[in-house]
Simulated scan of single mutants.
Amino acid sequence: MRYPTADEAELEAAVEAATVAVRRGELVVLPTDTVYGLGADAFDPAAVAALLAAKGRGRDMPPPVLISAQTTLDALTTDVPAYARTLVEAFWPGPLTIVCHQQPSLQWDLGDTRGTVAVRMPDHPVALALLERTGPLAVSSANVTGEPAASTAEAAEEMLGGAVAVVVDAGPSSGAEPSTIVDATGPQGRILRRGALSLAELNEALEPFGVTLVDEG
């Protein structure tokens, strides 16, 4: 079912419906600052498996995790280097995904992560309102693999409708490009996927610290 978010009452109804669905282990479509996302409870292995199945992906392509506050990064990851924290301070909330070593004590199964997790804090009020209630969500772009990422709720519903319990509709997404992904598991950061943030923008933030990223995207 698709829920509009044109006013406060609609927004509350949409966020509540999506929260209930997530807690039931169901999939939801949510807006972000880049494109629409397909979300599931990050700590529910069956829900994450359903997300991958809906997209037509295997365990070799684990989804990133969206969070509502910078402080949650330390609850999910370990050994975060200083340059990664600098980027988080500069670009969160925003279109930056950071890949870090995950906390070994976490009881979840996002796929074949090899001990890492990709984390992002989106710059979208509806997404943040939902994340504040649900906690971390495993979120991938709301499309079937091989198809364009959905920039509207209608497009997401058309591709994924049968697999999704709730679609939160906040109008067309404002970002045409996906987030930039930075691997922060080593002493020098590497861009794994080019996106909304350029290498120049990222390195400008790191310049005072004498650190530069390598572009492998």
Score class of each variant (00 low, 15 high):
residue 84 A to P: 09
residue 85 R to L: 14
residue 85 R to N: 12
residue 86 T to E: 03
residue 86 T to Y: 01
residue 87 L to C: 02
residue 88 V to T: 12
residue 88 V to S: 06
residue 88 V to N: 04
residue 88 V to A: 15
residue 89 E to W: 11
residue 89 E to Q: 15
residue 90 A to F: 04
residue 90 A to M: 07
residue 91 F to Y: 15
residue 91 F to K: 03
residue 91 F to D: 07
residue 92 W to F: 03
residue 92 W to H: 03
residue 92 W to S: 04
residue 93 P to K: 04
residue 94 G to E: 10
residue 94 G to C: 03
residue 95 P to F: 06
residue 95 P to H: 04
residue 96 L to G: 01
residue 96 L to P: 02
residue 96 L to V: 12
residue 97 T to V: 13
residue 97 T to L: 10
residue 97 T to A: 09
residue 97 T to K: 07
residue 97 T to E: 06
residue 97 T to S: 12
residue 98 I to E: 05
residue 98 I to N: 01
residue 99 V to R: 05
residue 99 V to N: 02
residue 99 V to M: 00
residue 99 V to W: 09
residue 100 C to F: 06
residue 101 H to A: 14
residue 101 H to R: 15
residue 101 H to D: 04
residue 101 H to Y: 11
residue 102 Q to V: 08
residue 102 Q to W: 01
residue 103 Q to P: 05
residue 103 Q to I: 08
residue 103 Q to K: 15
residue 104 P to E: 08
residue 104 P to R: 12
residue 104 P to T: 05
residue 105 S to D: 15
residue 105 S to C: 03
residue 107 Q to G: 03
residue 107 Q to P: 05
residue 108 W to L: 13
residue 108 W to T: 06
residue 108 W to G: 02
residue 109 D to G: 13
residue 110 L to M: 03
residue 112 D to E: 15
residue 113 T to C: 14
residue 113 T to P: 07
residue 114 R to N: 13
residue 114 R to H: 15
residue 114 R to Y: 12
residue 114 R to G: 02
residue 114 R to A: 11
residue 114 R to L: 10
residue 114 R to T: 01
residue 115 G to I: 00
residue 115 G to Y: 04
residue 115 G to D: 04
residue 115 G to R: 07
residue 115 G to N: 05
residue 116 T to L: 06
residue 116 T to N: 04
residue 116 T to C: 04
residue 117 V to S: 08
residue 117 V to A: 10
residue 117 V to E: 05
residue 117 V to G: 05
residue 118 A to W: 10
residue 118 A to I: 03
residue 119 V to S: 00
residue 120 R to Y: 11
residue 120 R to K: 13
residue 120 R to V: 10
residue 121 M to C: 14
residue 121 M to H: 06
residue 124 H to Q: 15
residue 125 P to A: 13
residue 125 P to W: 11
residue 125 P to G: 09
residue 126 V to S: 10
residue 128 L to C: 12
residue 129 A to W: 07
residue 130 L to Q: 09
residue 130 L to D: 05
